[in-house]
Design a protein around this nucleic acid. Sequence first.
DNA 1: GTAATAGTAATTTTT
DNA 2: TTACTATTAC
Length: 685
Amino acid sequence: MSPLSMANFKNLNPEQARAARHIEGPQLILAGAGSGKTTVITTRIAWLLHRGIAPTAIVAVTFTNKSAREMKQRLSRMLGKKALRGMVVSTFHSLGHRILKQHIETLGYRLPFSILSPEDLHNVMVDIYRELKLDISQIRDDGVLFKISLCKNSALSPHDFASQKMNLESTDLFCAIYERYHQSLKILNAVDFDDLILLPGKIFRQDPEILERYRHRWRFFMIDEYQDTNHSQYDFLNQMVCPRNNLCVVGDDDQSIYTWRGADINIILGFEKDYPNAQVVRLETNYRSTATILKAANQVIAHNSQRMAKTLRSVSGIGDKIKAIAAADEVREAALIAEQIRSLINGRRLEPGDIAILFRTNFQSRVFEQELRNRNIPHHVVGGYRFFDRREVRDMIAYLRVIANPHDELALSRIINRPRRGIGQGSLQKIMDYLLAQESESRPDLFSIMELIVHEPGLIPGLRKESISAIYEFSEFINEYRKRFSRANRLSVVLAQMISDLKFDLEFQRDGDNENTAKARMLNLGELVNMLAYLEDNWEENEPPDLFDFLARLSMQAQDNDEEHPRGRVQLLTLHLSKGLEYPVVFLSGIEEGLFPAPRTLEENGDLALAEERRLFYVGITRAKQLLYLSRAASRRKFGEHQIVEASRFWDELPQDCLEWIADETVEQNNNTRQNVLTDLLAAI
DNA sequence: GTAATAGTAATTTTT
DNA sequence: TTACTATTAC
C-alpha cells in the first residue's frame, strides 16, 4: 500500500475501515448522520484505484451536483487530478443525460434535444387541457404534472399508476393526458427531468448491446444517499450493475426525506434481499455533534416505528444546552435570531459563515433576510429566488434553446416577440391555429412554418405585412446565430455578441425598469456569458462543449453554481437543501403546527407523512455541530393576516432537560389578556 | 399591438 | 402581503 493510503486508513475507525476496504460484490453502508461517510467513500475509491482498478471503470453517483463537486474536489486533493481521469462522479440525472447524448436517437428523438423546465411543462399541459376541454385553472389543483412525474419515478405504467393511486373513473383520463403529454414532448424533441433516468433504462431494455457496452466499461458503482432512490433510478442502476453486482450503496433510512418525489425507503430496506451476500456495515459513531444535540436527535427519531434501529454515539463532550426561542410573531422570531447571531459573532468569535438558519418552506426566508440586512449581517439565501428564475435570463436561455433545437416551440413562442418586434399574441395565435389544423403526425414545427411564411406570404390569411417582414427578420436572426454558434471556437464570445445585438437594454427601458434594475438585468445576462466561458475553460471531455452541453448544464445544475454557497455569510436554506451539510451553529425556525410538520401531506398520508416530517426534523437537528437553536412564533402572518399558531408537536418529543429557554419579553407581556392587541401593534411597527 | 389597471389567488419540500 | 391574470383604454 502506498504511504498515502496507509495514512488514510489510519484515520478510520474499524467499521469505517472495513467498509472502505470492500471491493467486489454488494455492500450496504448504513451511515448515520455525521458518521464520516464521505471519508469512507473517498477512501474506498482510493483503495479501488490502489488495487489496480481503472478510474474509467468506477461510477460514483450522488444526489446533488454540489455533493458530486465536493467529492471530486476531495478525491483530487487526495490523489491528484490525473489519477481520476475518466472516472464518473455525477448525479443520476447527469449520468442519464450522458447516456441519452449517445443513444437517444434510437428512441426516435433527434440531437440536440431540450430539457423542459417546470414552466415549460405547465405550458404543455395548458395546451392539452384546452384540447380536452378541461378547465385550465385546475391544472395546479389536479396536480397532473406532479402525478405524471410520480408515475415515472415509480417506474409504473400510467394505467397501473392511475388504478393504484386514483379512483377508477379518472384512470382513463389520466392515461389519455399522459399519452398526449408524451406526444407533445416528442414533437418538441424534448424530455422532462424524469426522462433523463427513465429513457436510458428504456434504451437498455430495448437494445441489450448498448447495455452490454456500458456494463463492460463501468464495473464498480457507488451510490450516495441511497435512501432517496426511487424505482426508476433503481431500475436504471440495476440494469447496469447486473450481473456482477459490484454495488456499494451508502445511506441512512432515518434521513429519507424525498418520498414525495417517488423515493421509496423500501429500496434501501430491501437491499440485502435484492443483493444476497451483501456486506452490511453500520456507522454509528458520530463525529459531528455534541452529546446534547445527539441525545435530542436520537429521542426525536425514536418516535418513528419503521426503521432500522440504530443509535448515534457521540465522541464529543456534552456541550451547551439547546436554546429554545418562543417569539411573539415571525418578525420577532427573526429579530431575536438575528440578535443572537450578532452576539455570537461578537462574543464567541464565530464567523457568519459558521451559522445557518433552516426553515421548512422557502417563503419563510424573507423575514430573515430583512432582519439580517437591518443589522448588516452578511447572509445568503441558498436556492431562494434563483438566478434562473429571472425573466431576462430565461429569455436568453430560450434563444439558445431555439438555436440548438429548432423544434422547441415553447422556447420559440417565448422569444418570438421579445424584444418586441411586432409579432404579438394575435399573429402568433393565427400561426398556431394553422399549425394545429395540420395532421399531427406530419405537422411542421413553428420555426419551419415561419420560414415558409416568408416565401409564401399568403399561407396564413390575415397576417399583417409588418408581421411577415418581422417574421422574416427574426428567422434570419436565428439562422445567422445558429451558424455563428456552430462555427465559433468561443461560444461565450458569440453569446455576448448576440446579447448586444438583441438590444435588451433598450427593451428593459421600454418595460419601465428604472436605471438600476435595467443595469442589474444586463449584469445577469453578463453572468450567463461568464458561466458559459467558465464551462469552456473547465471542460474535461475530449470534444469541446457545444450549446447543447451548456443548456444541459444549465437545466440540471440550475441550483448550484459556484456562487451558491459563498463563504463568510450566514446561510439561509430549507431543511431539504441542508441535507449533507453541517454548521457549527444551526437555527431551526418556525417549529409550529401548520408549518412543521407541513399540514398538507398529513391530511393525505397520515402517519407515513408525519414520519417523514420527523425525519426532516432529525436531519435539521443533526446539521448542528456545537450549538443548536430551535424557535417558533406565537403568531404568524398568513396571506397578509395574523393568525395565532400553536407549538409544533415535535417540541414534546425533545428531551426537555436539554432545552434552555430564551425569553422574548413581548411574549411575557402577552400573558396578559391583551395578546391580540399587542401582536397587531407589533406587526404595525 | 401595447400599456395600465383592477381583480384574484396563494404557501411544502427539488434533480 | 405579493404576484400573476384578465380586461380595458389607448
